[in-house]
Amino acid sequence: MNTAGTLSASGGGRPGAGMRADAERNRERILAAARKLYAREGLSISMAAVAREAGVGKATLFRHFTTHQDLIDAVFADRMDAYVRATEEALADDDPWLGFLRYITEVCAMQAEDRGFADVLTLTFSTAEALEERRTRAYHGFLAIIERARSTGHLQPDFASEDLILVLMANAGVISATGGDAPESWRRLIGHLLRGFATHGAPVPPMPPAPSSASLYRAMARTEQRHEGEIAKP
């Protein structure tokens, strides 16, 4: 029997190719698991939890992603691309004020859709170079968005680029506290903020409805339970 010929015909004579395919499948499983967990729980999820969700060993995970920041960089590359595109679209809007309003609302909506991304936009990752490069591009674009909006007379003259960071931090906090019980609450927050940024008489979108008292009570109760659980940890 020609063993070498049989192996070659079946593909068994090219173990490197098979290993590369297996490695790529494992990488995609890890990324899919991380996206799912980050979107649901935020960035506090451990690498061990990602490995369990992906069905791979920790050694396999660390062969693909040496650090937590490496994994975050890979998972959120497409989301950061969308963040940059939102900036570019706002700058291309014929109405600078409308572009400003849409930009704030769109970025906050991106946070609401993915708790992990809500965290990414309010943190820095010094070793995640690709992610930070996109953040820098979006930031410089936002500086131009501010100047264009201010030129219309509709944006308060004392609005500063740092105010966007405060908006994103506040929005991330609301999303974390109310996401499971009053998931549209963030829209109400942004409605109030946009009115605060606008000069008297400037056009603003209709005010979103307030969340119900019952849904906010459930969100507050859930937050209290979370805090009690954290305090009880050894």
Rank of each mutant, 00 (worst) to 15 (best):
L91I: 04
A74K: 09
P208W: 10
Q156C: 09
A51F: 14
M110L: 05
S46W: 03
A21N: 11
G180Q: 11
L121M: 07
L164Y: 01
I231A: 13
Q225W: 02
V167A: 10
G229E: 10
R188H: 07
E132Q: 14
V84W: 11
S126T: 06
R52N: 00
T136C: 04
W97S: 05
I231P: 02
A77L: 09
Q111M: 12
H200M: 06
H68V: 06
F142I: 13
L61V: 11
R218G: 03
A198P: 06
P96R: 04
R35T: 14
V120L: 10
S10W: 15
R29K: 15
G196M: 12
A23G: 06
F76Q: 05
E224V: 08
P205Y: 12
I104T: 07
H68F: 10
S176K: 14
A130H: 11
T178G: 01
A128S: 12
V167M: 09
G173Q: 10
G173V: 00
G191P: 09
G141W: 14
M80E: 08
Y217Q: 15
T122K: 07
M47V: 10
Q225S: 06
I145E: 01
R150W: 09
A51H: 13
R102F: 01
I45R: 11
M19Q: 12
I165G: 03
R52M: 03
F117L: 05
L155P: 07
S212C: 02
R25Q: 14
A90M: 05
G57D: 15
D78R: 09
Q156R: 13
T105S: 07
A17C: 03
A77G: 06
A128D: 14
R35V: 02
H227N: 05
A32M: 13
P183G: 05
P234N: 00
P157C: 11
M169H: 05
P211I: 09
N171P: 09
V56Q: 14
T223V: 04
R137A: 10
R40E: 13
S126C: 04
L43G: 08
A198H: 03
S44K: 06
D93F: 04
S46D: 03
W186P: 00
E133K: 15
E106F: 02
G18M: 08
H192Y: 08
A149K: 00
I104V: 08
E224H: 06
D22T: 08
Y83A: 04
L98Y: 01
E28H: 06
E129F: 07
Y38T: 09
D94C: 03
S161L: 07
P206W: 09
I175Q: 01
T223C: 04
E28T: 11
A219F: 10
D70G: 03
R79I: 06
G196V: 07
T3M: 10
L164I: 10
